[in-house]
Design a protein around this nucleic acid. Structure first.
Lengths: 138, 138
DNA sequence: TTATGTGCAAAACATTTGCAGGAGT
DNA sequence: ACTCCTGCAAATGTTTTGCACATAA
């Protein structure tokens, strides 16, 4: 596991990272907790939060602050975009080229120092449109 | 006030909308509550949440689900983009052209029905870079 | 008049934190 | 050994909700 100085390689951290790497579903902290708990039944939810946060700060994983009430985590750290179903809340990757040129546009339009950008599409996933479910809109 | 059928025009709603229209700062629900309370001291926080949510659903205002722990609200409903200071958490509008062409790219790349997109830049605002404050990163 | 909205308080969620004991280096 | 980390539980912060009363239409 890639790591920061003073960041110990604990069983909890290895397993959190392994489980996150297994899925493409952008799980919430609680979903990661459920996945990890199958292998480490005594792990605490606080430990999961602490480690996801630490790993996100070190750049080992990505913390997604997309729509919905909970934060989501992603083992893929390269910049890429997401689409969120406005009906069921599911988040998927969307494979379109990274629009790096907009950072330059943004730099001209503001006096912030630009660090990066993220694009979130909203839409209705196939499952939900087949069910013709009324979108919940949040 | 623009409104949905069966949505009454109450004093609370008028004032929430007026106060939101006065600022460009993308306030959180609690900040709106503080603004409104100066004019309606007995308003409840629940009323502010309920009405911001209702107005966002009717499209009268915009609910921003950007980084940070709280949702933010915006009286400008036309699609436009935002930049969030990774140090102090402040959110500003950023005036670059809306990239409508990426919706078509997204439509080809997924089987979701595309509804729209939002771009959030991250950066360091002038105040924070002058202070040379260490970014909090969340 | 009557369905909808409000204030208040409690509940429900999501996340963070203090602490005493445990484990990696 | 010496930190750093963990489990647990309690605290915090944000948002939602139940209910009796108030009010817009």
């Amino acid at each position: 596991m890639e790591q920061l100085p003073n960041m110990r390689l604990t069983t909890q951290r290895q397993i959190i990272l392994e489980e996150l790497g297994k899925v493409t579903s952008h799980p919430t902290a609680n979903e990661v907790y459920d996945m990890v708990r199958k292998r480490l039944p005594r792990i605490g939810l606080g430990t999961v939060y602490r480690n996801l946060e630490l790993m996100a700060e070190s750049g080992i994983i990505l913390k997604l602050e997309v729509g919905g009430t909970q934060k989501r985590f992603d083992a893929t750290v390269e910049n890429h975009y997401h689409i969120r179903c406005s009906s069921c809340g599911k988040v998927d990757d969307i494979e379109i080229p990274v629009q790096d040129q907009i950072n330059a546009m943004a730099a001209e339009a503001t006096d912030y120092e630009i660090l990066g950008h993220h694009i979130e599409f909203s839409g209705v996933c196939k499952d939900c449109s087949e069910k013709k479910a009324k979108p919940a809109l949040h």
